[in-house]
Write a protein that binds this DNA or RNA. Structure first.
Lengths: 168, 168
DNA sequence: TAATAACTTAGTAAATTACTCGGGTAATGC
DNA sequence: GCATTACCCGAGTAATTTACTAAGTTATTA
């Protein structure tokens, strides 16, 4: 299976969306800040996620993205296949032409591994993840961290430079 | 987890070794022909496999490699970790510093996925694979195919050029 | 001592990944 | 209605990794 940072970023971003579901559309700029993912890269990922029907978008000021259905109806496998195209560990892409026209010695091994991974990721939903305690705690922390770095909305750049710095 | 053709080649080569275990040391040249893997690349892989103690080598004519222990005591996971270094799907390599010093939102998800994959591959031995019917059949075919291509041992290059060619 | 085959190191083309850049376009609020 | 916000889209690109080659050296056997 193709498991790269692309898939990881996509899942992280979708989880951010699921966590802030109650706050209306979530801007990519916000996700970018909280999860430290480049905005342009997020745009690419969300184009795919939208085309696969996992999210819907709202344009204009106050706009952003939201989940197209319940977080409990979106499996991690859905997200990864949406951005990574295929979940497959074989060389031949499951076609069985790994060695000339024939299957290679280990063809069946990789197909059953692929099945295994897919089942695992298909069995976990975004909703389940949001319910986990460590996820909630970390999400809380991320929100306050971002607020600390950007006190208001970067209107006056020197506002944070007091003598009593929050420091350590 | 890092699952590339490198790991796949290593498993295929080791399986070839396990299948021809009874024929004494197996040369990399033979594996290269049967499995269609570049000889130099095999040499690199077997350097790692030897250092990890999975195979032992015999130098000189008639030499080659053989499994260092029973094929039933070598798990697929052993082979892949030997050549790919790590079985891990996290970005941080399991260190937990995926986002600054902290863990990212999805850290635990990837660690449990990694565990899942590892367990699967640790539960399958080379010996189990050799026992499978389709593997045996395919191995048989590979041997005869190679013999057809190289009738004797390429001593006289023109020997195959008869008027009654074997053709289709 | 000549052939064989393991061993070793260095390098490299091709592919992929993870981005950036620059320009759109639709919706909203003043 | 016009500025702003934020989605939308495609092309390009630096860095990394993969898969592989080249060119040797060392050990063993006949």
């Amino acid at each position: 299976m193709r498991l790269t940072t692309k898939g990881r970023y996509a899942v992280t971003a979708m989880l951010d969306l699921a966590i802030h579901f109650d706050k209306g559309p979530i801007s990519l700029a916000g996700i970018s800040e909280r999860q430290e993912i480049s905005l342009s890269y997020l745009e690419q990922l969300f184009t795919k996620l939208r085309r696969k029907g996992l999210v819907k978008s709202t344009r204009g000021p106050g706009g952003g993205y939201s989940l197209s259905r319940s977080a409990y109806d979106i499996a991690i496998a859905d997200i990864i296949t949406a951005v990574d195209e295929k979940v497959d560990t074989t060389r031949c892409g499951g076609l069985g032409n790994c060695q000339g026209d024939e299957r290679c010695l280990t063809h069946e091994l990789w197909t059953s591994l692929s099945d295994q991974i897919y089942s695992f990721l298909a069995g976990i939903s975004l909703g389940q993840l949001t319910a986990r305690k460590e996820v909630q705690e970390r999400a809380q922390k991320q929100t306050t961290n971002v607020q600390k770095v950007k006190p208001d909305t970067e209107q006056n750049e020197e506002s944070g430079l007091d003598t009593t710095s929050p420091g350590a």
